[in-house]
Amino acid sequence: MALPLRQSGTLTLPGNSYCFDYESLDAGRGLFFIARLGAGQVIEVDVRANRVVRVIDGLPGVHGVMVIPARNRVYATATDANQVVAIDETTGTVLHRSPTGDYPDGLAYDPVHGTMWTTNESGSSETVVDAATGAVRGTVALGGEGGNVVYDPVGRRMLVGAQTRNELAVIDPAALQITRRVPLAGCDHDHGVALAPADRLAFVACDGNARLLTPDLTTWCITGTDRVGNDPDVLAYDTAAHRLYAAAESGWVTIGDSGRRQLTIAGRARLADGAHVVAVDPTTHSSYCPVPHGPGGRPALLTYLPTP
């Protein structure tokens, strides 16, 4: 089932073929940040000029990365050091490092309380850090290994995959307490999580059985279950186009459209080796996928545009 995409650009990235993990785009400035975990680096790319701006070192085992344009900061999880690191977006300077639990992975930002949330995967918890100062504000125990965490701007709550419980945990970010556990029937090991806030839908990638579940954020019922590539990981949602991208460790990408509050699969195909990370620009609808072996065997950032 062909992907509704056409390749629109390729940028060779520095270094060797270390694995890439999460990535984050500042669409307003056209700055793109990619976690290169094997090298402990974040690569900053100007996607408008199609050039590498800088490489930020000193982030051992980096997994998660998230840019917060309103704060002019980039946050990254230095997984091997059990830290979340704040970086100046303009200069690439490290501003502060905050302790987390074991194996920090994904990140989410709560703009109401001004906090960064870090999922401690093997630590089975969330660490909540003041986004301005780096002070740790608290910890939320999940009762099992943590998957990704996201902020729901409509419900003003955090949602996190409790992956060894096959549940979605709903957290009150003011009280730092779990208020609901949503069973994910048909899911084995929920890791990736993304939201369609206006459509009141969540998307959950189950890496144990290559399934994508669509819970309704109003009723908490599962409205759909779809097949994706083996070992699904990173999800990205284009809010303007109502389109979901699901990338998998196996190199397969699945694309779905969420019109009428129901996800419909528009394409599913193998993109490239190591293509398990995807990000999307909701203004241009470009999608970005870093791969360890691009043209000539060099690491590359592949850019795609949707086809009609």
Rank of each mutant, 00 (worst) to 15 (best):
A174T: 14
V160A: 06
T133N: 03
P232Y: 11
A241R: 14
R156T: 10
A248T: 05
V234S: 02
G147F: 04
I171M: 10
A210S: 15
L201M: 12
Q163R: 08
T223Y: 09
C221E: 05
A246Y: 00
Y245L: 13
A169G: 07
A247C: 07
L159D: 03
V150A: 05
P153Y: 15
T179A: 11
A210K: 09
L184V: 03
V193R: 09
A246H: 02
G134K: 05
A210F: 08
L184A: 02
V140L: 02
D226G: 06
Y245K: 10
A169H: 04
A185M: 03
G155I: 07
N230E: 11
Y237W: 03
E167S: 06
G192W: 06
A241C: 07
P153V: 15
R157Q: 15
A169Y: 04
L195C: 06
P232W: 11
A247Q: 10
G186P: 01
G155P: 12
A174I: 11
T219V: 03
H242S: 08
D190G: 01
R156L: 09
D233M: 11
A210R: 10
R211G: 11
A196T: 08
R227A: 13
A175C: 06
G138C: 01
W252A: 05
E126S: 01
L217C: 02
I222C: 02
H191N: 09
W252T: 06
T139C: 01
T164N: 02
A175W: 13
L159G: 06
V150R: 14
G224W: 14
S125H: 01
V154C: 04
T225F: 01
A131S: 14
N209D: 12
D130R: 02
R180V: 10
C206M: 06
R243A: 12
G208Y: 00
L159F: 11
D199Q: 14
D207A: 00
V154I: 15
E145A: 00
R211P: 04
G161N: 12
A141S: 12
D231R: 10
G155F: 11
Q177L: 12
A162I: 04
A169P: 05
Q177S: 14
Q163C: 00
L244S: 01
E167Y: 08
A185T: 14
N166I: 03
D152E: 15
A205N: 05
R243K: 13
M158W: 08
T239K: 08
L159I: 13
L235A: 09
R200H: 14
A141F: 07
A162D: 07
W252C: 07
A174G: 15
V136S: 04
G146S: 11
T133F: 04
P173S: 09
E167N: 09
H191V: 03
M158I: 02
G134F: 08
G208A: 02
I222E: 07
A202L: 05
R211Y: 04
L142I: 07
V154L: 14
G147Y: 00
D231T: 05
L235R: 09
V154P: 10
R211N: 11
A135L: 08
N166T: 04
F203Q: 05
G155E: 14
T127Q: 00
G143W: 03
L159E: 08
L159Q: 01
G144E: 01
V150C: 06
E167M: 03
A194C: 11
D130V: 01
T133R: 12
T179P: 12
R156N: 13
V170W: 12
Y151R: 12
M158T: 04
D231N: 07
S124W: 01
